[in-house]
Design a protein around this nucleic acid. Structure first.
Length: 214
DNA sequence: ACATTAATTGTGT
DNA sequence: ACACAATTAATGT
């Protein structure tokens, strides 16, 4: 298990920090579809993602979710940082997009490291920066892109994260993530299929056009 | 193996 | 957006 931590963070953190990290971290494995953080929860440990991918969703009180961004190996969630430091309730939900594992760090340790290790400070700050720019992308998509474009980029993101051209999601699930209705997704997907971009099967979608990838 | 239900997807208004 | 048909998967008997 410590190998997993080294694999994901060995190049980012200095040696002493890695030592401490491996001492205090507990490993948590999760499966696809697991809810890691629910809205309103208090967070007492900070997660570092070792493998797999997690999607961060925002949810409105009366019906409606929206996918904000994905986090991948080597990332942490800036919202979690805020919640742990501020001892505030979570404003987002984190759902496992794929199975994977993460390391949990006690809050008091991460505060201690802030003063102690430069690499840790950088990591936390970078993390904020990355999230901020990904949020901007998400906002741009929402504001300026048509649904068909949003769906297409969404499919591409999913394919990239799964390292696979086959996407194992129902139309309904995708609709939730983009905060629209299933019928809209179905029709758009049908159109993409006619255009030869994808192939539709039951419970999964296959990307065909190679210029959709990467 | 069969019948019944539920879930998923397609289509028309 | 809504309603409904068609198809497939899941479950019980």
């Amino acid at each position: 298990m410590n190998i997993a931590i080294k694999e994901a963070y060995g190049t980012v953190f200095e040696a002493e920090l890695m030592e401490e990290l491996m001492e205090v971290a507990t490993i948590y494995d999760f499966e696809e579809g697991d809810i890691l953080i629910e809205i309103g929860e208090y967070i007492k440990k900070m997660p570092l993602l070792l493998s797999g991918a997690i999607k961060i969703m925002r949810e409105d009180k009366d019906e409606g979710e929206l996918l904000l961004y994905f986090i991948e190996k080597g990332d942490t969630c800036a919202f979690t940082l805020k919640c742990t430091l501020g001892e505030k309730q979570s404003e987002i939900r984190a759902v496992a997009e794929t199975s994977g594992s993460l390391a949990l760090i006690p809050v008091n340790k991460m505060e201690e490291w802030m003063g102690k290790y430069r690499s840790w400070r950088n990591f936390v700050l970078n993390s904020y920066n990355n999230r901020l720019s990904e949020m901007l992308v998400a906002v741009d998509n929402l504001a300026f892109m048509k649904m068909d474009e949003r769906l297409l980029t969404h499919l591409q993101e999913k394919a990239k994260i799964n390292k696979n051209t086959i996407i194992n999601h129902t139309h309904q699930e995708i609709a939730y993530e983009l905060n629209t209705s299933r019928v809209v997704i179905s029709r758009l997907l049908k159109r993409f299929e006619k255009e030869g971009l994808i192939r539709l099967n039951r419970k999964n979608i296959e990307l065909l056009d190679s210029n959709l990838l990467n």
